[in-house]
């Protein structure tokens, strides 16, 4: 990790991982209400869009991980950062749900859901 660009890409990868799993969490029945703050159930179309956007972020993460690290390190880094992102989202949901709500609502607004 020698230069600034590599650090930026690493941060981008972490953000992609975290963002992707925030969206995946929104797409679950259990967490939709508590994150969106809306009473209504999540419509199937919106759920598909949420999951699509989440997978897009997972893919974007790969684009951030691969160039600076090469295929071997890149794939490992990408897969493990996704794991860490999912864990981070799960623990934020557990202990700091209040922090996650504005992030989730911002992302929902950006996706027009």
């Amino acid at each position: 990790m020698p230069n600034a660009l590599d650090h930026l890409l690493l941060i981008a990868l972490a953000l992609c991982a975290y963002g992707a799993f925030v969206l995946f969490a929104c797409a679950t029945g259990r967490h939709w209400n508590e994150l969106s703050g809306r009473g209504a159930d999540l419509p199937d179309r919106s759920r598909r869009r949420l999951r699509g956007a989440a997978w897009a972020l997972v893919g974007l993460g790969a684009a951030a991980a691969l160039p600076g690290n090469g295929a071997g390190f890149g794939v490992l880094l990408w897969a493990l950062t996704m794991m860490a992102g999912a864990m981070a989202v799960a623990f934020t949901l557990t202990w700091r749900r209040g922090w996650l709500q504005p992030i989730a609502r911002g992302m929902l607004a950006a996706l027009r859901i």
Binding site: M1, N69, L77, T81, M87
Partner: peptide, 17 residues
């Protein structure tokens, strides 16, 4: 055996998990 600090920490996290 490689030098990659972010990966090293992620392995540690996975192991603790």
């Amino acid at each position: 055996a490689f030098d990659h600090w972010p990966l090293r920490w992620l392995y540690f996290l996975g192991g603790l998990a």
